[in-house]
Nucleic acid binder design. Structure first.
Ligand SMILES: [Mn+2]
Ligand SMILES: [Mn+2]
Ligand SMILES: [Zn+2]
Ligand SMILES: [Zn+2]
Lengths: 131, 131
DNA sequence: ACTTTAATGATAATGATTATTAATTAGTAA
DNA sequence: TTACTAATTAATAATCATTATCATTAAAGT
């Protein structure tokens, strides 16, 4: 029988990772986070970064989504949406709560208890749509 | 300089893969597609299945999305949305075009030319929400 | 200071996907 | 029908993001 962990610790690793995510407006991969944090904690490993990112995501402190076979993390947990360029992969934020609200309120799915919506606009960023 | 391929061939492998995806209402992974198709074409390999799935997705004949570190494929290219259970991972369809329409019409993102929206409802399926 | 156990660092392992390449074959034109 | 060309295949090796393992370290409560 496995007893689920209840206490978490505020290690400097976790704190730095969190701080970094809160400081940027991008949606970095685990490796990108590692590259930023390793400058402050040279001994940190990629595995530790992964461990903490999952930890934070499970606790709802950060967001996590998959794109191009990689996890991307988001320090902003406010209700918002994303645009992803089909060509260059650039990810940008959209803050239009009404869109998510509408989707959730209109959904009629008897056999599903929806907690939130993930909304991703697929298309082309300014730079790529000009080509 | 690489010249992009212009002609595609209707191999029995591609045809069977397509037929299979059109015949189911699930959202199988490449391996699941392989397991189904290999019954009819014993010599087919997983790599061929991957190649064709990407091919079909690029041509817009099928949909493709990532979930749990795996690609999932959808033979139904109609405008529709999905529900994914956070616990068991079950994926189900929602056919409410108005939700996607609303999202696309309301989006105001100057630097982005949106072509379509991916809408995923996250929550719990009947079976898992009862627990 | 002492204890408990979550977390780390180092490293090996995993597994889905992709790359390579010689052989095959769909599509087309003679 | 036959021949030609390039797309596609089967077999296989390689890639690489992510996880697992485990001995050691260090939060946090007493
Ligand atoms: Mn964001
Ligand atoms: Mn579907
Ligand atoms: Zn772009
Ligand atoms: Zn479920």
């Amino acid at each position: 029988m496995i007893k689920k962990q209840v206490k978490t610790r505020n290690t400097i690793q976790r704190i730095k990772i969190m701080k970094y995510l809160k400081s940027v407006k991008t949606h970095p991969t685990a490796e990108m986070v590692y590259n930023a944090v390793v400058k402050e904690i040279p001994s940190i490993t990629l595995a530790t970064v992964y461990r903490n990112l999952h930890n934070l995501a499970n606790k709802g402190k950060i967001l996590m989504f998959e794109f191009n076979k990689e996890y991307h993390f988001d320090g902003d947990t406010c209700n918002h949406q994303h645009c992803i360029c089909k060509k260059c992969g650039k990810i940008t934020d959209v803050f239009q709560e009404e869109i998510s609200k509408y989707a959730l309120s209109k959904l009629r799915a008897d056999n599903f208890d929806a907690k939130c919506v993930t909304i991703i606009f697929n298309g082309f960023c300014r730079k790529c749509s000009g080509v």
